[in-house]
Nucleic acid binder design. Structure first.
Lengths: 225, 225
DNA sequence: GGATAATTTGACCGATTGGTAAACATTACA
DNA sequence: TGTAATGTTTACCAATCGGTCAAATTATCC
């Protein structure tokens, strides 16, 4: 649930000869990754500098490099920490549930994540946009497997007539893109909507529209051309 | 129609005291912008270097800087050249046309652009993702005005019952995001689809799905909740 | 409280960055 | 064909890049 929840010790400081992580290590690594997320999510890997991250983290550059040996290591640690949680909504997709409910709440969850964790969304967007040089394996491995599994669920729903016949992969892509759009292209959305519509209600407006679109678009009670 | 069609002289070389552009200027600027598109569309502004562009363009760095005084100038020229064409599909959206046909062909056109001009799509994606520091004015000005105008068209269609009642802005956003996704997140799409579905048919599959989704989702002949 | 390990820092390194100066080569045009 | 304007290149610059090092500081534990 929480993006900041650790799954694994991220790195072991090079100077550390003990295996246990100290309190200071926990705190500082947290502090660094938080800053790294700020910077990487805006400028991408190539466009970000260790100095920028150091400044945001309020540490000296050598101090950063004491905890993460290289810029790559910092990026790696960040990706690892965020990736698992990022896929949670899709994992929650339940084959036994009611199709309409499942799709509706998947959209909701993805939209909430775009609202609450835009930096995480942009981190991946930047990475993928630039050819995913650091996460290719994750895409072709765990991600593909998860999507394959859920696509099969959707295909079964379509086959049994619970939803309209459709390509499950492109359905998933379209849910990803429409929801993440609000995080990744936030500046554009704001610019186009202007101040009138950029406030509180934006999230609800988007949710309502997308549910209408997908629920309506997937209604089974109509012959498809 | 053609991305490479010039609208305006892009820059005037600093050394040029004449106002006319020579044949060499035309060719070299073309060559540079072509290379710049290659590089900027992958790495974004900050992550790209003049040396990279010079290498792709097969010119020496000072030679590049003879035509474009700074990295910013190159980026600026590129944006200017591409932006107008990029909005063409939306501009073609016809108030007098049949709603279903118009939406269908808007999706088609956007999808074709994602297929045929992925670099241009990524150029903007990178820019917007990183906070649109160089194109904020274009977003708040020309883009917003165009979208406002077309949103009004869609609203009128909804009001007269030709399509379902829906938020026209979020409809436009969702068409943008779903179509551009195939350019911007190409690596991910490929990774997930695997080799089986990544071939020729991908474009047609996506088009079919999106048309089904949007046409179905916007059918007026059903009371909305 | 002192020894030891963990942490932090300033000074520094070679490579790369965006950009310049000026000499040199080429082109266009009279 | 000469020459002035245009185009290209080599050598270079200061600033910044990712990263190292050794010395100084702080936390930990007996």
């Amino acid at each position: 649930m929480n993006f900041k929840g650790k799954q694994q010790p991220v790195t072991i400081p090079r100077a550390a000869k003990t295996l246990r992580r100290t309190r200071i290590q926990e705190e500082k690594e947290e502090q660094i990754l938080e800053a790294a997320l700020d910077v990487f999510s805006v400028s991408g890997f190539r466009g970000s500098t260790i100095d920028q991250i150091a400044e945001v983290a309020r540490m000296s550059k050598p101090n950063l490099l004491y905890y993460f040996r290289t810029k790559e290591a910092m990026h790696r640690a960040l990706i690892d920490r965020v990736l698992y949680t990022w896929l949670e909504p899709l994992r929650a997709f339940d084959a036994e549930g009611n199709p309409e409910t499942e799709i509706r709440s998947y959209i909701r969850r993805k939209l909430e994540m775009a609202r609450d964790f835009p930096r995480e969304s942009r981190l991946f967007a930047n990475e993928v946009l630039q050819g995913a040089p650091h996460i290719e394996d994750e895409l072709k491995g765990p991600l593909k497997e998860l999507v394959d599994e859920k696509a099969e669920v959707i295909r079964a729903w379509a086959k049994s007539g619970k939803i309209a016949k459709c390509d499950p992969y492109h359905l998933i892509f379209s849910i990803w893109s429409t929801t993440q759009h609000y995080a990744d292209f936030d500046v554009q959305v704001r610019a186009v909507l202007g101040q009138e519509h950029s406030g509180e209600g934006r999230f609800e407006d988007a949710a309502r529209f997308l549910e209408q679109l997908f629920i309506g678009g997937l209604r089974p009670d109509r012959l498809e051309t």
